[in-house]
Design a protein around this nucleic acid. Structure first.
Lengths: 253, 253
DNA sequence: ACCTGAACACCGTTCAAGT
DNA sequence: ACCTGAACACCGTTCAAGT
């Protein structure tokens, strides 16, 4: 009776469901968690694999490579952007979409480094584009202006968040290095004051520059300018009662 | 006479100037060459060193690390942007600066991946900001609107080039993979056509989409909208004869 | 079908050692 | 002062081998 007797089932740990250890969806979720936590430079296939208790090679069964994984994460976060097609006030509808887009980019700053590099034709990106075009069509823009108007709004969102992120990383860097470099920093600031009077005057006028606040104000200011410019290019009379009128279907060309 | 006699000086190759093999400036120039040729992912310290006939460790005598090198390249290309402070028509002055900025980014697409990540407080960046503020001040904008107006223009430039680069990399990818995937691509396009009517209608309307042309048109359209919106927020009367009037000095607050 | 483990070629960075 | 050469820890990716 030394051995051989089948041990009780309950003592033998159930082995993991076998099929469900990994999936493309789980990999993407974990990759986004890692990107949010460690930034764009901090993402590694090995790191993602470790978070999933798996070796790096396994990921390549579900994903062609790191670039494809990044492409998937990009479209995944694009799915977080909301657009309200039922908002009757077209300026509210457009700026609502823009704000949601901006907030997504601020939640996931690593997306900025991907935007110019990675192609972006995933289902969520296409859906968002369709929604944006729909809002503008209902707003009364001519068909041939739809893409241009949407691009104008999207470009402003992206550009503004890029500027905000750059500013943030600039102060992060100066704050960390300024300790031992007070002398050099002082010289640098003196030089700026002399050779860049307007710039330094604006910097001083800002007082305690709360990045969140200033960025928000700039975003709203430029968006208002842009929407004013777009409004004059609509086909519908600007005096119309938007909230009462029925939605205007886009004309067939 | 086997040996020992001092060989002629002329046979002994002059050893390299000893001090001048490397310099921060040379490293930056070579790094930009490499970035232009191989893109952002293609840059490596070892590669830059090899182009300079030097081992990788040598670079660290002149530069703290890869991040600092990228920061230097960023400001270097910022020096390529022109701004004409003497242009009397403020819209021409602003759009001229914006166009020069845009062309720089199109020449060096790798900058886009840096913009949100790397801080940007180099002398060229500061000088350009000062010039932009100067143009807007002469244009008659109130002091407290200067940064917002400049940011609005810059953000549009950056956002538009990001979108253009993303589009370009999307077609590059589809063109290379579409060969064996005609079936899948067809399915995907059919799906788009059904679920994204506006989008597919706009894609078809574009016909042969020359990216250069469309991007240029979109850039100009949005810039015009933005400048219209900014124009109504100037303090000077819009009916003024800009080309004849003397420049208006910015008011002291 | 799915995952491991080891290997390959390549990184950024450090640092003693040379000149 | 400036550069080398070797080392360290870390990558993305591949692939035979296991189950």
């Amino acid at each position: 009776m030394s051995s051989g007797a089948p041990r009780s089932v309950w003592l033998r740990p159930e082995r993991p469901p076998r099929d469900r250890r990994l999936s493309r969806a789980r990999i993407v979720v974990v990759a986004i968690e890692s990107l949010d936590a460690e930034g764009h430079e901090g993402l590694s296939m090995r790191g993602v694999a470790a978070r999933l208790d798996v070796t790096a090679g396994s990921l390549y069964w579900y994903v062609a490579g790191k670039d494809e994984l990044l492409e998937l994460t990009l479209d995944e976060v694009m799915g977080e952007v909301r657009a309200d097609l039922d908002e009757p006030d077209w300026r509210l509808a457009v700026s609502g979409m823009a704000r949601s887009h901006r907030e997504m980019l601020r939640r996931h700053p690593w997306v900025l480094a991907l935007l110019g590099t990675q192609p972006n034709m995933g289902p969520n990106a296409l859906g968002l584009a369709e929604a944006g075009l729909g809002i503008l069509a209902r707003a009364g823009f001519a068909e041939h202006l739809l893409d241009g108007a949407l691009a104008a709004v999207n470009d402003h969102v992206i550009g503004s968040v890029v500027a905000e992120a750059a500013w943030r990383s600039a102060v992060r860097q100066t704050d960390s290095t300024i300790v031992g470099w007070q002398e050099q920093a002082a010289d640098y600031l003196r030089e700026i004051e002399q050779r860049h009077p307007l710039l330094s005057r604006r910097l001083l006028a800002a007082g305690s520059p709360d990045i969140d606040e200033v960025s928000e104000a700039r975003f709203a200011f430029a968006l208002d300018c842009l929407l004013d410019g777009l409004a004059t290019r609509r086909e519908n009379p600007p005096g119309e009662r938007v909230s009462r009128s029925r939605p205007v279907p886009p004309e067939e060309s």
